[in-house]
Design a protein around this nucleic acid. Structure first.
Length: 962
RNA sequence: GCGGGGGUAGCCGAGCAUGGACAAAGGCGCAGGACUUAAGAUCCUGUUCCGUAGGGAUACGAGGGUUCAAAUCCCCCCCCCCGCACCA
């Protein structure tokens, strides 16, 4: 075969241009049923790659399918600019940071000529330029991917219109009493003087830094002066025997209220970020405290302060209290002391746990740990911690807490210690971390952080109720979303840095970027219309009217026009007519709610839950989201795609490297939403061959005459039956978002059917039968591979000229789903074919095993006159249980052969189906003889090997004569 | 640890909810053949083992169990992936 000579790139461009010119994806209000689909707007800090493309592509496939279903579809797009990353990039570039500049040169050179790269990147010192550049490029990328987006509604999240909208949202939440201010611990960089997140932290994406709450416990050194020990296990305070300190480290005295706390220098700095009243006084060498006695706070026992090398001044407070019965570190350190100095300190056991007498001692012995420098101490600590936490019980030394499991009593002990003014809270990071700039990351407590309080019961109830009524795909995420709502508590919603909307209640704060992207889908419905209004008009009243129907359009218009009239002078026509406002309201009313949000699982516990909760709080029930679908990520050659691995393929390169339709097909077919897609070059190549073959198949049927109804043979009917059955299944699956199955069914399986058909009939006839189903086939494939379908559709219809405005309905993209021709779906035809296939297989098997070249084939069916009783019994016992079958059969024919037959029947496990075997075989005799290149006869008397008796219904007996 | 998802032939990946037609779809890879000057593409055949008649044996992470019958149901164990918050 010559292979298809199609220039895919040309076709992509042609149809994208024509779709654009004809504005077919610009969604306008129609009386039809509507479908409003959104995917997350991309963050414009850099180019998107093929992994991101999966979500947008699947979104577009759904949008296109919904159009075929007859929905008036709105699929809009905007750009996310809010937050710190873009600003941080601009700052770095302004500061000429080499690494960032190099990275952005790479990014820009995806799009720009080498000559312009430098200049462009230089302009990125300004954050706005970064955002604008990538927003513009990503728009182009999306157009090149063939996405059916209504671009008129595009906006970005830093423009004034958006700010106004976000202000409105926060006022609504404020009215509900869920915007509050309070203390909040965060990861923080002193150097940058700001909060830092996963993206700001070195290796933060692979090795997360979380906030750990330590308990500090005061050990009195002298009046009002305390050594402050930090611990994760405050319940072990009852077993304390001594303190540990690092002699070489520097400690400081810190004035906290009326008390003086002694902690390491590092801890004092952290304390400064966690408490308002901490004041650092003099510095003291660790060694100074060695040998001193302190009073433990619970019993008032005097215990010694000892030096230990394992103490890290930069973890906790640099002071550790020692519980040698239960802490391996402490046990080993004391052992050291005993050996070197002969100092005996007896462990105090306070936790009973099965399998241990003295847990710390035993674990060290078992693991053969002998030195405090042994790295495995960490592991030993983990093991004991876990064992004791889940299985340990506090013993009689622990006052009223005795007899309770650690897991259940830990927090009670902690709270009691706090109440007794013995304990306090100290936050520490879960590991030592630095920012990408190298600044140390600590935990700071913000004293007046604004946050959204998701705890009110009424709100959670609304959230649960909403989720309950929604569709989720994959379904399991529904239960997960309920869990997230339960677990959601406080969420900081503003920060002092970054791009975004000023917090309306305190202007030096900026609304944080996940909090400003929760109900923005509503803005899509009206964004293009808001452009005609002055920004000042977009006040609270305005949005109340548009989104909630509160107030009156006339009054509102007057309010808007008054200041304008002042400018224009008396007697001038009002600028904004009531009709404009009504139109805006109407648009929102028509399109909202968001029928489907398609995104990826990482958004579940942040963006999506806010999306749901904010909708539930602000909008009436009729405007709440209807469905969420999620697709997993894409990896490449088995590995995660990331800048650092250098294995990223930009979305902008898809057309050039693979072709858009092929990429889209791969996204659709390679994995279900619930599975990770593995982008493998080898698989892409294999799919390309398939795809090209498919295109060629279509091409070869263009201009060919269809088979007429009266020409149809059994094989034609078989193909048509297969086709419409697959089509019917595919539409059902499409509706259920099982796009992979649609793709497999309508590409791989159908092509196999057609290959079989061609083998059975002829190439010429195949061209004709394909022509019979081609239009329907193209339509169902068009959401997935729209460009080639559009091309084939038009070639087939001979519409080579430009498509003019009035002919826009002629796009395949604007068709409706084909009718399923149920009359062609024919079980009998398919069963007959299966019957033949299995007969051929059996004969081949026999030829192979017996090593015979057939001279003549004898086939004996169970519906031959002499064997007919078999069919009768088959019919009679088909629905009976195994046990009853023989019994029932014997009623028909008391005979040993009957028993043998029924046994054979049961073993072959055939599905009952009425089929006239002899008739089918006679009809297809010529084909069968062709297959084997020899004579074949059916139900002849001649039966030299006595095979006849082995015939059972649907499985003829065979004798092959050499 | 908690919560969720998985472990299927050389690889990827269906099937498992409603146990039987499952040696297990489909694809890739590999081997042989056809076509070709050749390569590629395409098409056939094979791809656990045994078998001169359509059959049999062993197999679906490991081990038990239920059943006439288990990849599919139950129990237990091992391993892998994802989420656990302020970050877009």
């Amino acid at each position: 075969m010559a292979g298809t000579k199609i220039n895919f790139k040309e076709i992509e461009e042609k149809w994208q241009r024509r779709w654009g010119e004809s504005k077919i994806f610009d969604a306008e209000i129609k009386s039809d049923k509507k479908f409003f689909l959104t995917v997350p707007y991309p963050y414009t800090s850099g180019p998107l790659h093929i992994g991101h493309g999966r979500t947008y592509t699947l979104g577009d496939i759904i949008a296109r399918f919904k159009r075929l279903q007859g929905y008036n579809v709105l699929f809009p797009m905007a750009f996310h600019v809010t937050g710190t990353p873009i600003l941080a990039i601009a700052d770095s570039i302004a500061k000429s940071e080499k690494e960032v500049i190099e990275r952005y040169k790479d990014y820009v050179s995806i799009y720009e000529d080498a000559a312009k790269v430098e200049e462009t990147v230089n302009s990125f010192g300004n954050a706005e330029n970064v955002a604008d550049f990538f927003a513009a490029r990503i728009s182009e990328d999306f157009k090149r991917m063939g996405y059916s987006i209504d671009w008129r509604r595009k906006f970005n999240t830093t423009e004034p219109m958006y700010n106004k909208f976000i202000e409105w949202q926060f006022k609504k939440l404020y009215e509900k009493g869920v915007i509050n201010k309070g203390k909040y611990p965060i990861t923080y960089s002193c150097e940058d003087d700001s909060a830092v997140g996963e993206d700001d932290i070195e290796e933060g994406d692979t090795n997360k830094v979380s906030i750990i709450e330590h308990t500090t416990i005061k050990f009195e050194l002298s009046n009002d002066t305390y050594l402050i020990a930090a611990t994760l296990r405050p319940e072990t305070i009852f077993g304390v025997t001594n303190l540990w300190i690092k002699p070489a480290a520097k400690y400081v005295k810190v004035k906290v209220g009326n008390e003086f706390w002694i902690v390491s220098v590092e801890a004092a700095e952290k304390l400064g970020y966690q408490r308002e009243e901490a004041e650092v006084l003099e510095e003291i060498e660790g060694g100074f405290f060695v040998g001193k006695k302190v009073k433990e706070p619970v019993e008032g026992r005097e215990i010694p302060v000892l030096p230990a090398s394992f103490v890290d001044a930069d973890v906790g407070t640099g002071v550790v209290y020692s519980v040698p019965a239960h802490a391996p570190y402490d046990y080993i350190a004391l052992e050291d002391w005993r050996r070197k100095e002969g100092l005996e300190i007896a462990p105090i056991k306070i936790i009973d746990i099965e399998g241990y007498e003295l847990p710390a001692k035993e674990i060290c012995e078992r693991m053969r740990i002998e030195s405090q420098e042994d790295v495995r101490l960490e592991e030993a600590t983990q093991i004991i911690y876990k064992d004791e936490f889940y299985r340990g019980v506090l013993n009689e030394k622990c006052r009223e807490f005795a007899g309770v499991e650690i897991a259940a009593i830990k927090d009670e002990v902690k709270n009691w210690l706090k109440e007794e003014n013995i304990a306090d809270v100290f936050y520490e990071t879960s590991r030592k971390a630095v920012t990408r700039g190298g600044g140390k990351v600590i935990v700071a407590v913000l004293q007046d952080q604004w946050f959204i309080d998701y705890t009110p019961g009424w709100w959670k109830d609304l959230g649960h109720k909403l989720v309950e009524g929604m569709t989720f795909y994959p379904e399991r995420y529904k239960a997960y979303m309920h869990d997230i709502i339960d677990w959601l508590a406080l969420r900081p919603c503003a920060r002092k840095r970054g791009l975004g909307t000023r917090f309306p209640f305190e202007k030096e704060w900026i609304i944080e970027s996940l909090s400003d992207s929760t109900i923005y889908m509503a803005l899509y419905t009206i964004a293009h219309l808001l452009r005609q209004l002055p920004v000042d008009a977009l006040d609270e009243k305005f949005f109340d009217y548009v989104f909630l129907g509160i107030g009156d359009a006339e009054e509102l218009a007057e309010g808007i026009n008054k200041p304008l009239q002042g400018l224009l002078g008396r007697g001038a026509e009002p600028h904004i007519g009531v009709n404009v406002l009504e139109r805006i309201r109407e648009e929102f009313e028509y399109w909202y709610p968001n029928d489907l949000r398609h995104t990826a699982p990482p958004h579940l516990s942040n963006h999506l839950v806010f999306f749901l909760m904010h909708h539930a709080a602000i909008f009436p029930e009729s405007k709440l989201p209807r469905a969420i679908t999620l697709n997993e990520l894409m990896i490449r050659e088995g590995r995660k795609m990331s800048k650092s691995k250098g294995n990223v393929i930009p979305l902008a390169k898809v057309s050039e490297l693979f072709g858009v339709d092929l990429y889209r097909l791969y996204c659709a077919i390679n994995a279900d939403f619930a599975s990770v897609v593995n982008w493998r070059e080898q698989d892409v190549d294999a799919l390309r061959k398939k795809f090209n073959a498919l295109v060629e198949l279509f091409e070869q049927s263009i201009g060919v005459e269809k088979l007429k109804e009266n020409e149809l043979t059994h094989t034609d009917r078989w193909l048509l039956s297969k086709f419409y059955r697959r089509l019917r299944e595919s539409i059902e699956r499409f509706e259920a978002f099982r796009i992979r199955e649609v793709g497999l069914n309508m590409v791989f399986n159908l092509m196999n059917d057609i290959r079989y058909y061609e083998h059975r009939e002829s190439r010429e006839r195949r061209r004709r039968i394909v022509r019979n189903v081609m239009e329907d086939w193209l339509i169902i494939l068009s959401p997935i591979v729209p460009h080639i379908c559009e091309e084939m559709w038009h070639r087939n219809r001979g519409e080579k000229g430009e498509v003019r405005e009035e002919r826009k309905l002629k796009f395949i993209s604007m068709q409706t789903l084909p009718e399923i021709k149920e009359e062609f779906i024919d079980d009998r035809v398919e069963r007959e074919e299966e019957y033949l296939v299995s007969l051929i297989e059996d004969i081949k098997e026999i030829m192979k095993i017996a090593r015979i070249q057939p001279g003549k084939i004898y086939v004996y069916t169970a519906d031959a006159d002499a064997e007919k009783w078999k069919w009768e019994i088959f019919r009679a016992i088909k629905d009976l249980s195994e046990k009853d079958k023989i019994k029932e059969a014997m009623k028909f024919r008391k005979d040993k052969n009957t028993v043998d037959f029924v046994k054979q029947l049961m073993k072959s496990n055939l599905d009952y189906f009425e089929l006239k075997e002899e008739e089918v075989l006679e009809r297809e005799r010529e084909y069968l003889m062709n297959e084997f290149g020899c004579q074949m006869v059916v139900n002849e008397e001649y039966d030299p090997k006595g095979k006849k008796k082995f015939a059972i219904p649907l499985k003829p007996a065979i004798y092959v004569e050499g």
